[in-house]
């Protein structure tokens, strides 16, 4: 399917490139991606917040049959990460040398990497991946 990645990456630049979300001014709950309403206290006063990228591994898999655009990374490691602020995100896991060390609970750090290619002539999309801190 065609997608306008120039516009998409521009629109999502703050979250996709910089890990910007927000935080409720009342209950201090963190959100990523950013939200308009705090679901806990139903207010719409939230401040922008830049996540540190520090987190821990919740669960992972190794995807052999990758989606279109991700052939370069196949087979790829993919995981769910809980950031230290308590928010969960999904990301590819990068720099894996020994997957027996990918044990849920290990520390991870988000790093900036190429996410996928839109064909040989298309836009490159960048974003965050999780690097295990072993």
């Amino acid at each position: 399917m065609s997608r306008n990645l120039v516009a998409e990456n521009w629109r999502l630049e703050r979250s996709r490139y910089l890990l910007v979300g927000n935080k409720c001014t009342e209950c201090e709950k963190y959100y990523f991606p950013n939200v308009q309403i705090c679901t806990d206290c139903n207010i719409s006063k939230l401040d922008e917040y830049v996540f540190s990228g520090k987190g821990k591994l919740i669960e992972w898999t190794k995807i052999y049959e990758v989606a279109k655009g991700f052939e370069l990374f196949a087979p790829l490691y993919y995981g769910i990460i809980e950031l230290e602020e308590g928010v969960r995100v999904a990301a590819q896991i990068t720099e894996v040398t020994d997957d027996t060390k990918l044990i849920p609970g290990i520390k991870t750090q988000m790093v900036f990497r190429k996410l996928f290619e839109d064909g040989s002539q298309g836009v490159l999309t960048y974003g965050f991946k999780a690097e295990p801190q072993i």
């Binding site: 999502l12 996709r16 991606p33 669960e59 990758v66 590819q92 996928f116 974003g127």
Partner: peptide, 20 residues
């Protein structure tokens, strides 16, 4: 925006659930 663009597939999602 946040699952597909990072490379998830449905087998991948259910694989994580199977592991959990």
């Amino acid at each position: 925006i946040y699952e597909v663009a990072s490379g998830i597939t449905f087998p991948g999602a259910f694989a994580m659930m199977a592991r959990a």
